[in-house]
């Protein structure tokens, strides 16, 4: 198993000081190379679950074991380091560094990781997403689809153990969304990468091997 989510809970304190349970005793495992989707209505806790898997937020109880490492046992700095080696994230809003060129954005996580052959790897991944000719462009002049390609390239550059995607097509029109979806799955399948995608998009969800549904903080196998 590449990912083991064991009985995790997460609650947030609201303004009236009452805790609200967002994630309630969730358990699931993901095998290496498996693609799974997590769907659910707004406010069901999808993004929170993704942030917990990514180690961006901490769980209240339970454990998340990624590639044999219990994330709750890592300090914040070690978690950052671990994330830079093992996890790739693709955001709905792309979140590119506006003042860095396409190439520089893709290089950044490799530089953080101090990876070898950064230039070669950058070129390779840019080739894969079809942006070799726009290496020097700034994000401001790219279309939404192109921005998401850069974000995917950035996430894939480090060859993570798991790729987490939060509504990767949520900000794109249908046609572009389809193209991005195809690109994402082709890349993942080509290197047998594990993918966890959080989405509203049923087509995207169904593209995955396995579908999970989140309802009021609880997880159910298969879609309704």
């Amino acid at each position: 198993m590449i990912l083991q989510v064991n009985n995790i809970t997460k609650s947030y304190v609201q303004t009236d000081n009452k805790p609200v349970d967002v994630i309630k005793n969730i358990n699931f495992n993901v095998k290496k190379g498996e693609t799974i989707s997590i769907v659910g209505p707004s406010g069901s806790g999808k993004t929170t679950l993704l942030s917990l898997i990514a180690g961006l937020d901490s769980i209240d109880s339970g454990s998340i074991i990624l590639d044999g490492q219990d994330l709750s046992q890592l300090s914040e700095d070690k978690l950052s380091k671990y994330r830079s080696q093992k996890i790739g994230i693709v955001f709905q809003q792309f979140h590119l560094m506006p003042h860095l060129s396409v190439k520089e954005n893709v290089r950044l996580p490799l530089e953080i990781l101090n990876a070898p052959n950064i230039s070669e790897r950058t070129n390779e991944v840019l080739e894969q997403v079809g942006l070799s000719d726009k290496k020097t462009f700034l994000p401001a002049v790219l279309s939404g689809g192109e921005c998401q390609r850069v974000a995917i390239a950035r996430a894939m550059g480090i060859q993570p153990s798991i790729l987490l995607a939060d509504e990767p097509t949520g900000n794109l029109d249908n046609k572009t969304a389809y193209q991005i979806e195809e690109l994402l799955f082709n890349l993942v399948e080509s290197i047998n990468m594990t993918l966890v995608v959080v989405t509203h998009n049923l087509r995207l969800a169904n593209h995955c091997e396995r579908q999970l549904q989140l309802k009021e903080g609880q997880l159910y196998e298969n879609l309704d």
Partner: peptide
């Protein structure tokens, strides 16, 4: 702030 968050999500430590 947003860019700092991006850096952190890419694995940058607070020290960095």
């Amino acid at each position: 702030q947003r860019e700092i968050a991006i850096l952190m999500s890419l694995g940058a430590s607070r020290y960095q």
